[in-house]
């Protein structure tokens, strides 16, 4: 509850700031429109040459791609800015202040910067996702949709945890950016239908670095491909991964405390 109130403060702060940087606001909308349109066009071109990708047809793939847009909207609004600043906070000693406050520093660093200037992109994501839903060739139950959206939100949280995994080595290496480009490079795995993945790869990106859990499994569940098993896998992987990250965070803080002066 208290953390919720803190979060409301962060949101308020963010609007105050966003109003000061209007260019950034318009650029971001522009960027996202172009970026996601190109992605949609890409799959459309592919479907000129085939009828299925893996076992999904065009309307399914389109929904999957728009679920990426929705996910990206959530992630950019809630987490991206925080993730971006994290290594600098660690390197430049910003962490010091947060360690002396009676609030979890991890909470601070995860939610401090709400990106009001990406909010438009979130709305755009919602709109295009809803459009893709109407294009689907099968009917679904309302609760199915609700579950799907919840799982996408869970995906955004999980992706942030993976982002943390890339940044936390900063505690040990003092490198300026950690391994963030590495995760960024794995984006195609997130964006392409899972059914093209072979067994080994699928295992690695489901259980080791759970990129498949972010969007692919939620879509599979929604398409009735593996409802119960899918939800189970998502729950287990998400929990385990977060446990691992929070353990890593704690040892990072310990390292920070013993290696600096």
């Amino acid at each position: 509850m208290r953390y919720f109130r803190l979060y409301l403060h962060f949101i308020r702060f963010s609007f105050t700031k966003a109003l000061q940087f209007r260019f950034d606001f318009t650029f971001r909308i522009f960027m996202d429109l172009v970026f996601h349109t190109l992605n949609l066009v890409f799959f459309r071109i592919l479907f000129n040459h085939t009828t299925l990708i893996g076992d999904w047809n065009q309307s399914q793939v389109t929904l999957f791609v728009t679920s990426f847009i929705l996910f990206d909207g959530i992630y950019m609004t809630v987490f991206a800015t925080n993730a971006w600043w994290l290594p600098e906070h660690i390197n430049k000693g910003e962490l010091d202040y947060y360690l002396t406050k009676p609030v979890s520093p991890l909470f601070f660093f995860s939610f401090k910067e709400f990106a009001a200037n990406s909010l438009m992109n979130l709305f755009f994501g919602i709109a295009i996702f809803s459009w893709a839903l109407t294009q689907l060739e099968f009917s679904f139950h309302f609760f199915q949709l609700l579950l799907y959206i919840l799982l996408i939100i869970n995906g955004a949280f999980l992706y942030f945890a993976m982002q943390l995994l890339m940044y936390l080595p900063t505690f040990w290496t003092q490198s300026p950016r950690g391994f963030d480009m590495l995760l960024h490079g794995l984006d195609p795995i997130l964006k392409y239908p899972i059914s093209i993945q072979k067994y080994l790869m699928r295992t690695v990106f489901t259980f080791l670095l759970p990129l498949n859990i972010v969007l692919s499994y939620p879509a599979k569940i929604f398409f009735n491909e593996a409802p119960i098993k899918g939800v189970l896998i998502i729950l287990v992987c998400t929990t385990l991964f977060w446990l691992f990250i929070s353990w890593l965070w704690r040892s990072g803080i310990r390292q920070y405390s013993s290696a600096s002066s």
Binding site: R5, L6, H9, F13, T16, G93, E94, D96, Y97, V103
Partner: peptide, 20 residues
């Protein structure tokens, strides 16, 4: 090192501290 938020009025940061 500053603890106040750079782009915001101090009064806003104080409200946050009140919560913290």
């Amino acid at each position: 090192k500053a603890q106040l938020w750079w782009d915001l009025p101090a009064a806003d940061s104080y409200l946050l501290l009140k919560e913290i």
